[in-house]
Nucleic acid binder design. Structure first.
Lengths: 192, 192, 192, 192
DNA sequence: AATGAATGAGATTTCATTCAT
DNA sequence: GATGAATGAAATCTCATTCAT
């Protein structure tokens, strides 16, 4: 019945309020995305989460650990629907990527992780694990299925092709080119 | 001819030491790349450049203006050599991109500009103007020449193809895939 | 200080520079009055006077000396007109005092000298010498004439009566009571 | 009955040390008086009060607010003793005024408030409310009682007479005339 | 556990003054 | 003599972290 916490056997006393944990991490992720690591102040996180700063430090020793924990809450997109139509499936995943990144300000979060790579490599590591890799996996799965079925002539390994498909969004964003409607379809058509 | 100051008020008084200007901007760019915007402190810039903080403020009113000026010193690669061999030319440019970004820690700088986009949009704007756009222009020029010469069958507009080529590096970097030897050749071969 | 160099030699067509000394002192006095001693920055004085900061330091070693010199330029009011009507003469001088202090922001300047008394006693000393004492002298002269002529029954020494007359303005100002029309007449009538 | 914090949120957390509050305000008032507003640095206040600068900022957001709070601690003199002897009562109050201003360096504080009037009008406002007005009220009360009792022939409204009595001190101070023994008695005798 | 208080270590910016031309 | 450059020494304010209740 009791919620034994990992690594803290025999924890006695007043249990931690789990709601606070969630609220803090959500606030941290929002502020991390919106303002970057250094501008995400613990004061602001505390205020947004409705707790005190000391409560944050009770759970994570440093601001860096908090940021890492917040990144670890990134949930990969739901497993993408697969129709068997390779191009349509890939385009759907690309379109979803563009939508999510645009809606959540994801490029700023990616920027934060890149910018902090020297100082806090964990951030980029966690971003990879929780966001980049799962996203790539979805594409790779479709491509592998296609190759197995001989559906499409693909003369590039799936991982590199995944990089090409995902990379277009990054490069476009850096160039100031915004993805309009039909963007995903055009990309897939051209690269395949 | 005459050396009177009257006609040339800019010459009055002690002249500015041009070395300081250069040193400050170089230090700022280095620290901006290595530590990001907020960790690039004026103290550190001053120390690295061998000047006082007030000397920095004499030239740029705020830290933000200094960072922008530092970014504006980014010189695009020398106009790339064009051999007429489309694939070789593109691969050479990609390889140079990878080399430069790796050597200078360019991805961290890109990250800083992305992370600060909301707070200081100028940074991303300057990065675009001084680094991204020129880089893309080199690729686009080769692709346009190829298309004009009918050298290669290209079924995608040059700009999008440039995004695909450049984007592979970004996506690979985010995925933790490091570009080994032959990387550029393989990418060009696959995408064309 | 010699004034032999009255103009810029051989500068045909260029208007003669107004006396820098005068311009600096005027600017300093204005800023001293408007912003107080510590907020009167040499940068602002230099800009207002149209000279460089170094030019100021060429004449006065420190900011304090400049402030003192500026105060020393305070010219006492023109010798007041004396009609022989004691009350009218006194009221005229009081009304002039109120007008001058109001128009020039004199209370702020008095405040600055008082506030700096511990740090720079010279300021209050100069204010006394150049503004307070002459002002009092005008009143005292009238009172002495009156006493000599037996015009008015004055049972208080002239200096103390001068303090009373002048002090009303100070006390009213401190209390937030603004002197309206007829103020001077009422005061004189009451105190005599 | 229960000791839950919910109903009394002010009791949660570490309680504020009330001594610090007092010490900070006392230090601020002392330094404000002795050195003026701009020379009253937070560093000095913190050192004099034995706290850190951040502790000051925890209570007052800006230096201006701190100075205002310090001025607001000025307590008017205890309600003056009233004997019924109008002249003696007035003289006693005047003598007390002179003693307090001399002992505490009050003229410098008045100077600071005057000097800062344009920049921080709150200071003069607070000085009025906490020091000037109460002081005047004491005089006015005596004068009103006297008039009601017909004790003295007063041909000037009480407020203006209060200005005259208080103003003598200001004017004397500005003129460099120091109030010796018997000063208050002489002033009252002369003006009434 | 949770909170508000407290703090040491900066960060940016300003300023009176000196320097070099 | 006059100027603009250069600087050392603050000054205000912020923040991650620790403390006491």
């Amino acid at each position: 019945m009791e919620k034994t916490r990992k690594g803290c056997p025999g924890a006695a006393g007043r249990p931690r309020c789990p709601d606070k944990e969630t609220a803090i991490l959500a606030a941290a992720l929002t502020l991390l995305t919106r303002h970057g690591f250094t501008r995400m102040t613990l004061d602001n996180v505390a205020r947004a989460a409705g707790v005190s700063k000391a409560t944050i430090h009770l759970r994570w020793r440093t601001k860096t650990e908090l940021a890492a924990a917040a990144l670890a809450t990134l949930r990969p997109c739901a497993a993408p629907h697969t129709t068997g139509d390779v191009r349509a499936d890939l385009a759907a995943q690309l379109a979803d990527l563009a939508a999510v990144l645009t809606r959540t300000g994801g490029m700023a979060l990616i920027g934060t992780c890149l910018a902090e790579e020297d100082h806090t490599p964990d951030l980029l590591e966690l971003l990879r694990e929780h966001a980049v890799i799962p996203r790539r996996a979805g594409l790779v799965r479709v491509l592998d299925q296609a190759r197995a079925a001989g559906t499409a002539a693909i003369d590039l390994d799936a991982e590199s092709l995944a990089s090409a498909l995902l990379g277009v969004f990054c490069a476009d964003y850096l160039a100031g080119r915004t993805a309009g409607p039909g963007w995903a379809d055009r990309i897939v058509a051209a690269l395949l």
